[in-house]
């Protein structure tokens, strides 16, 4: 319990540090939200600054901001006046989360399955085939894959729509683009970890007792072999669930990733800060969660009192 409290407390401090650093960096980069190629009269810039409280001293803006964050209000978007940061998260996060969940699940299922089969068929054609697919997955960037998928499956074959978020058919291509890399990594992790476990004495003993391979893998080898995959899943889950910037843009998916990119290029201060806070919250939260899950899966960690997840 103390272990968990300590983790949560350090997470909160990290978040405050992140807010402060982001706030400083954001105001340090040149350019502001109202810059345009047309020079605006000074009175208009002043009016806009007053409206969004950007005329106040920085420390005052910072303190106001932290206070409103503590109340759960991440403020209005400066550029999109129909939005607040809370509404952006409320609308965008479920979409990114949905896409991310499917991607994670697809990556996990494919990765674990191919990893186990590769290990069991070490140095046979299946293993080499899986190696080839993993190498492609690791070396081809998701946006290149996305472009290829759109070209063949939308333009040439017409099987799936090229973009927009209209039902399950529109999810297929973005899911493949995003899931390939983590699936490839999981396959490799799973394969090497399975090979290691399968050579352990207790597995040999179990095999000697005549336990069939299927039961041996599922009951005895898998639970131990899956640990490195879970470590990998922590940051990957946070990355995937909060939305992929590039893939969301390519497929016009209304998730959080698009907003984040847009907010930085348009210097939408409140959205940059709000989304950074939200991302940090998710990332730190998932890491704490993984640490806790780890203590259940591997009791040695609890004894040592330190986590491997971070």
């Amino acid at each position: 319990m103390i272990y968990i409290i300590r983790k949560v407390a350090s997470g909160l401090i990290t978040m405050l540090v992140i807010i402060t650093i982001t706030f400083i960096l954001m105001h340090a980069i040149p350019g502001g939200p109202f810059d345009s190629e047309r020079a605006l009269p000074e009175s208009i810039i002043n009016n806009l600054n007053v409206r969004y409280n950007l005329d106040a001293p920085l420390w005052e803006q910072y303190s106001n901001y932290v206070q409103s964050v503590l109340k759960g209000d991440l403020g209005p978007s400066i550029k999109h006046e129909t939005k607040t940061v809370n509404s952006i998260i409320k609308e965008g996060f479920p979409v990114s989360f949905l896409l991310g969940s499917i991607v994670l699940l697809a990556a996990l299922l494919c990765g674990v399955m191919f990893g186990i089969l590769s290990a069991l068929n070490k140095n046979k054609w299946f293993d080499y085939g899986a190696l080839m697919f993993s190498t492609i997955g690791i070396s081809v960037p998701s946006f290149v894959l996305a472009a290829l998928l759109i070209y063949y499956f939308s333009l040439k074959l017409g099987w799936f729509p090229a973009a927009l978020w209209d039902g399950w058919t529109s999810m297929v291509l973005p899911v493949i683009s995003l899931a390939w890399l983590p699936a490839a990594v999981i396959t490799r992790l799973m394969r090497s970890s399975m090979l290691e476990i399968m050579s352990k004495d207790y597995i040999k003993a179990a095999r000697a007792r005549g336990i069939p391979t299927k039961a041996l893998v599922i009951r005895h080898a898998l639970p131990n072999a899956v640990l490195p995959v879970i470590t990998y899943l922590g940051p990957t889950a946070a990355w995937i669930l909060t939305g992929s910037f590039v893939i969301e843009k390519i497929f016009a998916i209304p998730g959080l990733g698009q907003w984040f990119v847009l907010s930085i290029s348009s210097r939408d201060y409140t959205v940059i800060l709000g989304l950074t806070i939200f991302y940090s919250f998710i990332l730190i939260g998932i890491n704490i969660l993984i640490d806790i899950v780890y203590t259940f899966l591997d009791p040695r960690i609890k004894l040592m009192g330190t986590g491997k997840g971070e």
């Binding site: 699940l105 996990l108 209209d166 039902g167 399950w168």
Partner: peptide
């Protein structure tokens, strides 16, 4: 421990069924 691990894919599968069922299938 084995039961716990076996539960992960089941939970994931359930999640996927849920999310696909909830997908916005509104077409123009």
């Amino acid at each position: 421990m084995a039961n716990r691990s076996a539960g992960i894919p089941i939970i994931c599968l359930f999640l996927v069924v849920l999310v696909i069922a909830g997908c916005n299938t509104q077409e123009i």
